[in-house]
């Protein structure tokens, strides 16, 4: 196990460099895109001296390495700079918008994990039967339909034709957000025991999370299915059957665990990618998330906000990847232990 610990410490260490690299790239890209951020922040009618003053304040007149140095200096002291749009410290913005997206993606991830295994296992178990075909058709549809199309359909159906479930925002009007511990409304409301807010927050989460989950869900279901049908032809499965083990043990133990290994790796990446892909879903469902915030920051050339959002995304991506590696190592002793006695 010691070897594994060292491996993950090493991974953590390397990921610092990944984040530094990422921040440099995004820092440069954000600045070479044409347009003067100071001018955009102050508007076309602002006097030139005000723009010049802001440029000076933001170190925009220095060369890129110097600018980057100022930025890193800020980050090291926990100061991500001021947003040109919200006029607040970017840290504040992230604190406000990140939990909403985390909550959304977390529920989507639950959907993806649960249903991809369920559908994948069902399809594999009933390979080439009607149930497999049905799931296949659902999968093709689900993967082919972009999440924003689904989001619009949900909005149309549940907002207009059959309004049984709320479609906009994180909470119904009249309810107050629970006190902030994690920023995730469902968890915070449970922590203070406010079930009404919990239900309302959960209902608001449902549709956007589903819209976001459907694509990756079916893609993962296909991976689970193909890895299961692949493993079904392995001798170790024939062996388990030949030893007279019951179906539920053969399928639920001897087939499921090895089949999850390829699925988990892809699932991790897809779930991390949902952070960024959430943008259109957040726009449609009026969800105050960080993906939407980041997109608006880019449109406004809000330099500090762009860098902060990208670095936060990068951090989450890196962490999810390490988590995925941990799970895979748990599932697969060949990775965990290497060869030899």
């Amino acid at each position: 196990m010691n070897k594994l610990h060292r491996y993950f410490l090493k991974r953590l260490f390397y990921s610092i460099f990944v984040l530094i690299g990422l921040s440099i790239v995004i820092f440069v890209i954000a600045r070479v895109v044409p347009g003067d951020p100071a001018r955009m922040a102050l508007g076309p009618r602002a006097p030139q001296f005000a723009v010049d003053a802001l440029r000076e304040e933001m170190h925009l007149n220095n060369n890129l390495p110097t600018q980057y140095f100022y930025w890193v200096k800020g980050v090291a002291t926990g100061d991500l700079g001021k947003s040109l749009v919200t006029k607040r410290n970017v840290t504040e913005d992230i604190k406000e918008f990140l939990p909403a997206t985390l909550e959304l993606v977390a529920l989507s991830a639950v959907f993806v994990i649960m249903f991809s295994i369920l559908f994948g296992a069902l399809a594999a178990r009933h390979k080439d039967k009607w149930i497999d075909s049905l799931i296949r058709v659902m999968a093709y549809t689900g993967v082919a339909m972009p999440s924003f199309v689904l989001a619009v359909l949900f909005l149309l159906f549940f907002g207009y034709i059959w309004p049984v479930i709320p479609v906009l925002g994180r909470l119904s009007a009249g309810l107050y957000a629970p006190p902030t511990f994690t920023g995730l409304y469902t968890i915070d409301s449970l922590l203070v025991g406010d079930l009404e807010v919990f239900w309302d927050a959960l209902k608001h989460l449902l549709l956007p999370a589903l819209a976001l989950a459907v694509g990756p869900l079916f893609q993962e279901a296909r991976i689970v299915r193909s890895s299961m049908t692949d493993n079904m032809t392995k001798d170790y499965l024939a062996s388990a059957v030949a030893f007279g083990m019951p179906d539920r043990v053969v399928m639920g133990k001897y087939l499921l665990k090895p089949s999850m290994i390829p699925a988990v790796s892809v699932m991790g990446l897809d779930i991390a990618a949902m952070m960024g892909n959430a943008f259109l879903v957040e726009v449609i469902f009026n969800w105050p998330g960080i993906s939407r915030f980041g997109m608006e920051a880019m449109l406004h050339k809000d330099l500090n906000a762009i860098s902060a959002v990208i670095v936060v995304f990068g951090l989450i991506f890196v962490l999810v990847n390490i988590l995925v590696d941990l799970i895979v190592a748990y599932l697969d002793p060949r990775i965990r232990l290497g060869g030899g006695v």
Partner: peptide, 19 residues
């Protein structure tokens, strides 16, 4: 299968579940 017969396969690495 569980009480009468048992089988040994050609490839032991394939016949044992790796995980």
């Amino acid at each position: 299968r569980s009480e009468g017969m048992s089988m040994i396969f050609q490839e032991p690495s394939a016949a044992l579940n790796p995980v």
